[in-house]
Structure formats: C-alpha cells, structure tokens
Design a protein around this nucleic acid. Structure first.
Length: 476
RNA sequence: GGUCUCAUCGUCUAACGGUUAGGACACUAGGUUCUCAUCCUAGAAACCCGGGUUCGAUUCCCGGUGAGAUCACCA
C-alpha cells in the first residue's frame, strides 16, 4: 500500500495571485488528482505586517474559478486543521519545545541592531555572514520575548528534487535561522515544516525562491526526526519582455482579470500547464482530464519561461471553438453589448454561431456583434479608405447600392436565395466581389469586419438590411 | 561579493552521441466569391562562446559569458 499522496498550496495572503503563482498550485493539484490524493490549501499568514486585506478570499476565489478544488482548507474542514497558520500558534510552540528539549533551539541574545552589525562586519571582511559564528557558548534560555533560533548542524547536502534533479550545497549555507519571532509568530522556515509534517504532506511543490534555503530545511527534518517529503522546485515564470519574475507591479494581470475578460478556466489551465511542461509528444491542447492523466513533475522544464499572452489568446480561441453552441451561449450571457438586451435568445444564439470562430475572449463580443443589434453610425472611412472602393465616384457607388437594393428586395432572405441573388448581382453589375460585396457589407454593418455576407444579411433580415442600404445611399 | 540553478528559432518547447535540429504561438506570402476570423498550403527563423572526451557532439566533462534565485525576527 503506497502512502496517500497529499499536496498543498501554501500562499501567504500578501497580494493578488497572478498567473505565475497559480502554476505552482495547478501542478500540486494535478499531482494530487492523478494519484487520487488530497490537495490542501493552507494560508501562511505569519507576517501580520505584510498581510493584505482580502487577499485570502481573492486566493480562494482564484482557485475556485479555475476549478482547483481543495479537499481541506480554511473554509473546508479536514482532519488536519486549522489551515491558517495564525490559528496554529500553539502547535508551533509544542514543536519548538521539542527542539529546546533536545538542545537544538535557543534564545537569540542579541538585539537586531547587534545582529546587523555582525552582518556588516562580515560584509566588510568579504566573508559570508553566518549567524552561527556568533552563537553563544552557553545557549540562552528562551522566555518568549526574544527570537528563538535553531541550533543548526552544518554539513554538506546532496538531495534530489523532482524537477531540478540532483542538487547539492556545502556547509556554508546552513545557519541558525529564526524559528519563532519575538512577536510569538513562527517564521515560514519553521512553520511550513511543522505544518507539512502535521498535515502529512507528501510533495512540497514550491517556487525556486526556496531552493537556497532547502538545506536548512533538510537540517531541520533531521533535528526533528522527520522523513523528508518529495521536494519539487519550480522555476519562475518571467515577464513577457524582460527577464524579471512575473509580478503584479509590472502589469501582470491576476487570474481573475483573465476570467473576467472572458478567458475560459480550462484554457487558462491548458496555457499555464504547458508553460514549462509538455508530455514529450507534439500535443499542445490538453483537457483538464488529460493533464491529470499525463502530467509529471519530471517533465517540468528547469529554466524559467516567459509569459506569452498571444499564445494564451490562441489557446483560448481553440477552447472556445471546441465548445458546443449551447454551452458557449450560457457562458457569454454577461458579455453581450447593452444593445442586445432587447434581442431574443434565439437571435443571440444565431449571432454567436456566426461570431464563435473569431472570438478570442468573451470581452470582445460587443465589438464583434454590435451591428447585429443596433444600427451603427455611418463610418465614411470604411469606403474612403477601402482599397477598391476609394477609386470609385460617388455616383458609381450610389448606382451600385441602388441596384443591389433592387435585387435584394426581390429576395426572401434565406441563405440560399441570398447567395443566389448576390451571384446574380455580380453578373448584372459586372463587378468583382471585392467591390460589390465590400460595399454591401459596409452599408449593412458599418463595421470593419463581420461574418460572411450572406449569413449576416440573412440574420439581419430584409427590413433592416434594406433600411441600412438606404441610409448609406443618403449619406454618401 | 558568497552560494545555488539555468542556457535550442522572437516566444513555449522536442531531441536524451549520428536527424536536412522536429512541433506550436507569433510573423510573411498564397488559397477559401468582400472584410476580420477559421481552415489549408508555403516561407523566413535557433543549438551562448571556448576547450576537451569521442570515429562523431546541441547532447557528456571543464572553463568562460549571460540570465535567474538566495544570502531577513518575508514568505
């Protein structure tokens, strides 16, 4: 019987969750789901000064919209709660006491100013600063008013990371880090180890900012007599242009920005999952089920990947096109232009079926469909800047429009009959489609782009189409 | 500065000693009776540099360079 897989996403509620941050959560979720294990959300809120109001509910909302459901979390009880570190303070005291009892923890006798002096001195001497070089001979007793430090056991480490492979460091990275701060809260370094052990976490999947402190954690596992979990370190996702880590400050949008703009959760997940991971085949589009089945940490790339929004746009378009009309229709309800309010559902669904293949994200819907619901103002530039039409006289244009109108008035405006009428018009006017169809399309839509002419006319209907042609004639 | 990590088209990547270095996004050109899009076809586009090892290196080793991470009573 293999051990139950339990993975966790453990963000600190200090800001918004952007696309880079969510990747770690996604991978942890995938590992849990593919092993029929559990995925746990734990809020690491041990730094009160950095906490951002509402960040916790934002994180929960992001996971929810993407469908990364967790089996245990702050708002979902489990056997290993509470799932908010600020509610687990007693537990850290208990584990700290174990270290104190075994002589592996002691009170930091120095003020932070004194420690800072040691640090500057080391800098001046151009040697790495190590707190343990200043460790008192006789370890001071801890009364809770001073920081509690780990008495480390410096040694070199070689370990295996599920993503990075074999990693190694020398003794110089091991130090007496702080376990409990003077405000009584544990540090991340200590709290996450206690929590992962208490919560029986099997895979610690996190960003590469933790790679340098991992040897200290290995040292701590030993001091506590704990088995190490499987460690997996993710490279950062970089900004589109530069080489900076993706961050909100540089204009990176958070997950909700994307879903609000009408990006599909499954497309977002497809995009994020394949940013630095592939299954070794040439497949690019994955359903969530396929990802659960095929994902593996060992195929995650070791170098940082740039966020490419164009690719996200492409993936989202594909997922939209692969979706049934009814389903799509249900998802776009809140994105229609205001002018569509009066339109009936059947008509909107027809508009959607014509627009579907050019929709990249739902927020584009109004600009793509507005003319189906309301008559847009005449835009003279559409004719005056058209490659073919700008060469024609006004009189020629009016004449073409009049002829077109006369022919279309005879049509019953079914798709077949419209196609037929339009073909006849090409013959009677002896014009190229580039001229005739452009003109009719512009007159009836006033839009720079639209679906096919016959389909559009059919949907607009005879009355509206003729009115718009008239209006164009009067405003040449 | 110390430590650690990484390095294939503009971007995401495949390759695990022998390939015309493959795919995808983006881009360019053409086709689909008009536009935009879809779809199809074609095109341009990459192994960071220098040494080894080897019959043969993008691939293995060393050095350099570049990039990233970290060196908090932050996570």
């Amino acid at each position: 019987m293999t051990k139950d897989v339990r993975t966790r996403f453990a963000p600190s509620p200090t800001g918004l969750l952007h696309v880079g941050g969510i990747r770690t959560a996604l991978y942890a979720w995938l590992v849990a789901r593919q092993n029929q294990g559990q995925f746990i959300l734990r809020l690491e809120d041990t730094d009160q000064s950095r906490e951002v109001y509402g960040a916790d509910s934002h994180i929960i909302e992001c996971l929810k919209v993407l469908g990364l459901d967790y089996d245990e979390g702050p708002d979902k009880s489990g056997n290993f709660g509470p799932y908010r570190q600020s509610d687990r303070l007693d537990l850290y005291k208990i584990w700290a006491q174990k270290l104190i009892d075994s002589g592996r923890a002691y009170a930091d006798p120095y003020t932070s100013e004194e420690v800072q002096k040691f640090r500057e001195l080391a800098q001046k001497q151009k040697i790495p600063f190590l707190y343990r070089n200043h460790r008192p001979e006789k370890l001071p007793k801890w009364d809770g008013t001073k920081p509690l430090r780990f008495k480390s056991d410096p040694k070199p480490y070689i370990w295996t990371d599920a993503v990075m492979g074999t990693l190694s460091t020398g003794t110089e990275v091991i130090d007496d880090f702080v376990l409990i701060k003077s405000d009584g809260f544990p540090t991340y370094n200590f709290a996450h180890i206690v929590d992962d052990a208490e919560m029986k976490i099997t895979h610690v999947i996190r960003g590469q900012e933790f790679i340098a402190s991992t040897p200290n954690y290995l040292n701590m596992y030993e001091a506590l007599g704990l088995d190490r979990p499987i460690l997996a370190t993710m490279p950062h996702i970089l900004n589109e242009s530069g080489n900076k880590k993706l961050s909100k400050r540089d204009g990176a949008k958070d997950v909700l920005d994307y879903t609000n703009d009408g990006f599909l959760p499954e497309a977002l997940i497809n995009f994020i999952a394949t940013l630095g991971w592939n299954d070794g085949t040439e497949q690019e589009i994955f359903s969530i089920q396929e990802l659960i089945q095929k994902f593996s940490l060992s195929r995650v790339g070791r170098s940082g990947a740039h966020f490419d929004e164009k690719r996200l746009l492409w993936i989202n378009g594909i997922h939209i096109r692969n979706m049934g009309l009814k389903e799509l229709s249900n998802k776009v309800v809140k994105y229609w232009p205001k002018t569509a309010d009066k339109a009936n559902e059947d008509y909107k669904e027809k508009v959607l079926s014509l627009t579907k293949e050019r929709l990249k994200f739902f927020k584009e819907l109004p600009e793509l469909t507005e003319f189906f619901f309301t008559e847009l103002p005449i835009n003279p530039k559409l004719i005056s800047e058209n490659k073919y039409l700008k060469k024609l006289d006004k009189s020629e244009i009016i004449s073409l429009l009049e002829t077109s109108k006369a022919t279309l008035e005879q049509s019953d405006f079914t798709y077949a009959d419209l196609t037929n009428s339009l073909n006849n018009l090409l013959e009677t006017t002896n014009q190229k489609p580039a001229i005739l169809f452009s003109l009719i399309r512009i007159a009836t839509t006033q839009a720079p782009a639209s679906p096919g002419l016959a389909e559009s006319l059919e949907l607009l209907g005879k009355k509206v189409s003729i009115e718009r042609i008239n209006n164009q004639i009067e405003n040449i």
